[in-house]
Simulated scan of single mutants.
Amino acid sequence: MLIDAHPRNAWLLRMVRRRLREEFPKLQVEVNEEKSRTVDLDRAESFGLLGVDFRRLRSIGRQVWRAHYTPKLKKRTGLLRKLKEVFRRYQWQPVDGVMQLIDRVLRGWANYFAVGHSSECLSFIKDWGEKKIRRHMGRSRDRRGFGWKTWSRHWLYDEQKLFNGYRVRRTTTLKASPA
């Protein structure tokens, strides 16, 4: 739970802690005290939860502090490793089969992490995947390079149906009312 760090909201932090201590036993949820901690985003601390890294940054336009959350680098690296393994394992297979395999992986990963401020990460994944597909097609035809002129983006995404849903979903932030 994110709470404004202004001193006038210190009571809210105490109330949230107390309320959570009351409600968790009813839900049969145990708090792991070793992993649980209070993070002060004012001091540039960050925390990770479910593969997402949360921190506080100043916005570019209005210079307002805001919560910033992106996929953890470890998760992105894990995805790239998984895709590399697919390309390595199916190196001599037809491109259609390889595209179906990576399509499922990319679709799942992008749908999970397409929240917050992950557009830069998603753009990186999209470009990386496209280059790998192009390299795979070039190798299957004994060609060098990535085939930018040979295989257009239109051909890849519209005709071959390579996954292209890398849009970040914007959600409205729900504000909690005092307990």
Rank of each mutant, 00 (worst) to 15 (best):
R104I: 07
H136P: 02
M99K: 02
R153P: 05
D96V: 04
M137S: 08
W148L: 12
F163A: 01
F146Y: 15
E120G: 13
K149I: 11
V98K: 09
H154E: 14
D142K: 14
T150N: 04
R153M: 07
F146W: 11
G97L: 08
M99E: 03
V105C: 02
S140V: 04
L162Q: 02
M99R: 05
T150Y: 07
P94N: 14
F124G: 03
L106Q: 08
M137E: 08
Q100S: 08
R144D: 11
D96A: 07
S123N: 12
Y157E: 01
A110F: 04
D103H: 13
G108P: 12
S140N: 09
D96G: 04
G145E: 06
E120D: 15
E130C: 14
A114I: 00
L122T: 10
R139A: 12
V115W: 06
K161R: 15
S140Y: 02
I125N: 09
W155Q: 01
I125H: 11
L162C: 08
E120Y: 14
W155P: 00
N164D: 09
R153H: 11
W148S: 08
G108R: 12
W109Q: 02
G165A: 02
S152K: 06
D142T: 08
F163H: 03
R135A: 13
R141Y: 04
L101S: 08
W148K: 11
F146D: 01
S123Y: 07
G97V: 06
E130F: 06
G97E: 11
G108C: 10
D96T: 06
W92M: 05
I125W: 10
R134Q: 10
R139F: 09
Q93M: 02
P94V: 07
R135V: 05
C121R: 06
R134H: 10
V98I: 15
W128V: 10
I125Q: 10
W109E: 05
E120C: 09
V95Y: 00
V98A: 09
R134I: 13
Q93P: 00
D103F: 07
F163I: 00
R104G: 14
D103G: 15
L162M: 11
K161S: 07
G165R: 01
G138F: 03
I125A: 14
M137F: 10
G165V: 01
N164P: 00
M137H: 08
E159C: 00
Q100D: 11
G138M: 12
W155T: 00
